[in-house]
């Protein structure tokens, strides 16, 4: 039986009736067409699906859409404002922190979460902050540089 839900997505209320088994990431991608959030695994390991749920980074593959009812979700599509990239997006671009781009949306939210809880992380703390996100292209090094640069530039937003 479907369940009605309303979630504020990138500042806009979106309502739908969904099967309880629908994952938040499937709701975003398949119901709303917000395909920026990626699915890279099925065991909650890779972090490609990370979004902000009420301002906190979560793996949207490990959250039922019905659990997010009444919450606010920010996806990668909602991070830039008026065409202006966020500090993290700029830093990833500047430091070549992405190659194929598939892990990037999740990686940016992992970095966002790190800077939320620790605005001036050391390289080692950055590496620990990225432990729930997998990248097969960059060897992580330029991602670490990007997070450092974003921190130096004044943060995540």
């Amino acid at each position: 039986m479907k369940v009605p839900i309303t979630i504020s997505i990138n500042g806009r209320a979106r309502s739908a009736e969904v099967e309880p088994r629908l994952l938040l990431v499937q709701f975003l991608r398949d119901v709303l067409g917000l395909t920026g959030t990626k699915i890279g695994c099925d065991t909650s390991q890779c972090g490609a699906c990370m979004v902000l749920l009420d301002g906190i980074a979560v793996k949207s593959c490990t959250c039922l859409a019905v659990q997010a009812d009444g919450c606010a979700v920010t996806t990668i599509e909602g991070l830039a404002s008026n065409g202006q990239l966020s500090a993290l997006q700029e830093a990833f671009w500047e430091k070549h922190g992405l190659q194929c781009g598939f892990c990037t949306p999740g990686m940016i939210f992992a970095a966002y979460e790190l800077l939320r809880t620790n605005p001036n992380p050391s390289p080692e703390q950055i590496r620990h902050g990225l432990e729930g996100n997998m990248c097969r292209c960059t060897g992580y090094q330029n991602i670490v540089r990007a997070v450092q640069a974003a921190a130096a530039a004044g943060g995540r937003a």
Partner: peptide, 23 residues
């Protein structure tokens, strides 16, 4: 020259489309 990549803006904003993103 180590210029920034042209690919990146679409990848950074979630607007790039991979095979699974098409319907």
């Amino acid at each position: 020259s180590g210029i920034r990549r042209r690919e990146d803006p679409r990848l950074l904003t979630g607007t790039a489309l991979y095979t699974a993103d098409f319907t």
